[in-house]
Computed example of a mutant assay.
Amino acid sequence: MRSTTLPDDLRAAVEILWDYNQLDHEARPVDLGVGLGSHDLGVATHTADLYNQGIFPKIVFTGANAPTTVERFPRGEAVHYREHALDRGVPDSAILVEPKATNTGDNIDFTRTLLKDYGLLDGIHSVMLISRPYQQRRSYAICRKRWPEVEVLCSSLPLPLNEYIAGIGDVDRVINMLVGDTQRIWVYPEKGWAISQDVPYDVQHAYRQLVEAGYTSRLLAA
């Protein structure tokens, strides 16, 4: 049975990274919503809810599979996201599916190609990336690098940290993913994959504390 309880001695560090990786953008109308594939079906839930609120008129769900999603979404992340959105009242005509992306860079690049193929790209001037809460900052930086012509907003299902962990059902998985996403904030710009962003000292300290505690499974090799 996996634990869903944060260790008391690490709670402050986890909360610092949790807050840092969310951007708190206003949910205001944009031209396109992009649901980024992952193991978290809450991304599709939130994308559908935002569509139903009139935040955007069109959705692209993008994602193939990763080792962490193939069992849960055997037909691919984007395909399952689409089905979930349909169940939540989004019309099929409002959804495009990009089923090949295996990372966030692909999500952005392949979404642009899909829109171009449908003759829609020139009409997209603003996008909202819908992701896991701790994926916002990384996704924003990648999109700004790879699709600089558009205004980029980010959004996630608005859940407190404890509630999010309970929904995933595995606190270690959430912490490992959170640590890995934080590392990517400075590694990806070095590789030319994303724009640079400030990393405050308290974030750096919290990151090191969690790495020293053994949360390293999602770290990139040096």
Rank of each mutant, 00 (worst) to 15 (best):
H205R: 14
R138Y: 09
S3C: 10
Y207C: 06
L23N: 04
I59H: 02
R184S: 07
L220A: 12
L157Y: 08
R2T: 09
I16W: 00
E71K: 09
L121M: 11
I59R: 00
S131L: 06
L96E: 12
D198N: 14
S3V: 05
Y20R: 01
P99I: 09
L41R: 08
S196Y: 14
K100Q: 12
G33I: 08
V203S: 02
G167D: 13
H25D: 15
T182S: 08
V43S: 03
T69M: 04
A94G: 04
W193N: 11
H46K: 13
D117P: 00
R173I: 10
I195S: 10
N65Y: 08
Q209E: 14
D8I: 04
V70D: 10
I124V: 15
I185C: 10
V150E: 06
D31E: 11
P148G: 03
R208S: 10
C143I: 05
E71Y: 04
P158L: 07
P57V: 11
G214V: 01
S156F: 03
G180W: 03
I165K: 01
R112M: 11
A194S: 12
T111Y: 01
S131I: 02
Q135S: 14
R72K: 15
D40Y: 15
D170E: 12
S126C: 08
T102V: 14
S3H: 09
S217F: 11
Y81S: 04
E212H: 11
H125E: 15
R173G: 09
T104M: 10
Y201M: 10
F61K: 07
G214I: 00
W147N: 04
H39V: 04
R28S: 15
M1D: 12
A94W: 06
P133K: 02
I185K: 01
V211D: 04
G167Q: 12
K58P: 01
Y215V: 00
N65W: 08
P133R: 07
L121R: 10
F61L: 13
Q197V: 15
D170R: 07
G105Q: 09
N162K: 14
